[in-house]
């Protein structure tokens, strides 16, 4: 899918997981592996990391040899995107995620309602290209509706902002 010569995704994920297993093993060795009262905190992580390391290296090597013919078949999302013939789908998905990630600091600063409004507005206006009015109305409705549902009706605490506001 990405390259004919090597499956880049497999290589990168294999590499990342191999590094992770090395990290797990080195961290575990710094703790007690077998203590006087039985196995220590490093015991179990070493066990699974010892399987993880060869498995990830296998994936890495396999990826360098090229994509497996069998795997390309089952990925519905990909098929749809290709059928659509548009390249912007991935960008839209990542932009949505970025908006969610940005919402975290926004909420810590300005509270749940503001953060939820911003996120909803972004999704409606930018991702789904709704009109300004529809986006504003729906976002305000969602933010306030969830606030009423959780904070008022169910008494579940929502993130409160540093500068006030829920």
């Amino acid at each position: 899918m990405l390259s004919q010569k090597l499956a880049l995704g497999d290589v990168l994920s294999g590499l990342a997981l191999a590094l992770l297993s090395v990290y797990i093993i080195s961290a575990s060795l710094s703790w007690s592996v077998i203590g006087e009262m039985g196995p220590g905190p490093g015991f179990f992580p070493i066990l699974y990391a010892a399987v993880m390391l060869p498995a990830s290296l296998w994936l890495l090597v396999r990826g360098m040899r090229g994509p497996r013919p069998a795997t390309a078949a089952v990925e519905p999302a990909e098929d749809d995107a290709e059928a659509d013939g548009e390249g912007g789908g991935t960008q839209a998905a990542l932009a949505t995620w970025l908006a969610l990630a940005v919402t975290v600091p926004v909420m810590s600063l300005a509270g749940f309602v503001a953060g939820c409004f911003g996120l909803s507005f972004f999704v409606a206006k930018v991702v789904f290209r709704r009109s300004l009015l529809a986006s504003t109305l729906s976002s305000a409705g969602i933010a306030l509706g969830l606030y009423v549902l959780f904070q008022v009706l169910l008494d579940v605490d929502l993130p409160a902002g540093l500068i006030g506001g829920r």
Binding site: M107, C116, L119, S120, V123, A124, I142, D157, L158, P159
Partner: peptide
């Protein structure tokens, strides 16, 4: 969907915050 997706994310945020009690859980 432009209404449904934000609702899901909003509920998910409220849920993650409710369980962990801090924004780190939302992160």
């Amino acid at each position: 969907l432009y209404v449904l997706f934000p609702i899901i994310m909003g509920v998910a945020i409220a849920g993650a915050y409710g369980v962990s009690g801090n924004m780190f859980g939302v992160g």
